[in-house]
Computed example of a mutant assay.
Amino acid sequence: MRAQEIAISPDSGERKSRTIDVVTFGETMVLFSPLSTGPLRYATHFEKTIGGAESNVAIALVRLGHTVRWISRLGDDEFGTFTRNFIRGEGVDTSAVTFDHRHPTAVYFKERREGREPNVYYYRSGSAASQMKPEHIREEQIRDAHILHLTGITPALSDGCKETVHHSISLAQKHNLTIVFDPNIRLKLWTKAEARETLMEIAAKCDVVMPGLEEGTILTRETEPEKIGRVLLKNGAKVVVIKLGAKGAYYQTADDAGYVAGFPVDQIVDSIGAGDGFAAGFLSGYLRGWPLGEAVRLGNRIGAYALTVAGDVEGYPFWSQMNLDGDRPDVSR
């Protein structure tokens, strides 16, 4: 199965009118990372950058040579300006970003721990992005894209955000976009039961659904990739891709399935952002017309890159850095 066959394909005239490869929207926060390891109570010096699943994917895709539009609301404050400028500086189209003078830009902190995943502390309640409503996503911002990329973080932020997700799906369906959904479950934002009900409803409307293994279990109550895939296909997806961490990923369609091995990483520096890197790599392979298994393999490669550098987006490679082996990239650099 070729990647471009996995979802609705516009006719040739429609394709020529589309100037954006991917459109995505969601909350991006200012990220403070301590320069030291250990409890935050002892940290005195921090680095300031940004982090957010959707903007992570947008930045990674631009570095891989694609055009991406990111839509969001930011506080009309210094952090909001910094966030917009950072993402715009990476080459992402931020023309649809709006500023809110009543609600702030969210922030979060990482707590570094030697040899373990960092703890993350969010301060996002009442943020500008949580105030998103359907009227903040306009039809002209969606219709000129090939893919709508969504995550399950956005509907967890507020009822208005959940309505906005469904509104964007309706617009994407009207204009025959491929809809890609990464559940990206954040249990600090809601319960497993709430997540399951809302995200399965969203997944039913999407062409590609790509959870992690634990997320797939939360959604389907199944523990094996093959069974998770079958439930999500029955629910409405055309393609299911399940991220398996160091083991790679598993993909399944109505007539094809397979495991794709991951790439070994000698030293994991920071695991946050690796799943978003996988999503960007997979979407890049899809947009290049690669077979489904090769698109998944590219996702594994980009995810491996992300593990080697501290920060949410700092580890994503440019296409020119991929050290191509034949016509496929090599994870080493």
Rank of each mutant, 00 (worst) to 15 (best):
A274P: 05
V22H: 05
K110E: 07
M322K: 02
M210R: 08
V208G: 10
T308S: 13
Q252I: 12
I87R: 03
H66T: 04
H66K: 15
G285P: 07
R18D: 10
I302E: 03
R41N: 14
E27H: 08
A60I: 13
R102M: 12
E14S: 14
T24F: 14
V30K: 02
T198H: 09
P39A: 13
D325S: 15
G216K: 09
P134A: 05
H146Y: 10
S170T: 15
I268H: 01
T308F: 00
L324K: 09
V165R: 14
D100A: 13
P118M: 04
I6S: 09
R143P: 02
A254T: 14
S170G: 14
V296Y: 03
H149T: 05
S127G: 11
V208C: 10
L219P: 06
K110G: 11
R69E: 02
R15N: 08
K234A: 14
Q4S: 12
P264M: 01
L187I: 08
V231D: 09
G89Y: 14
E111R: 03
P211N: 05
I50E: 07
Y286P: 10
Y251A: 06
A279F: 06
L171Q: 12
D255N: 11
L232K: 05
P183N: 14
I59A: 13
V209W: 06
L177P: 04
I202K: 15
R301I: 15
L31C: 05
V240W: 05
S130Q: 13
Y251W: 10
E314K: 15
L233H: 10
A96M: 07
G38P: 04
F278W: 12
L244C: 15
G258K: 03
A156C: 13
K234V: 09
Y123P: 00
G26C: 09
L150R: 14
A195L: 08
S72W: 01
P264K: 08
H146G: 01
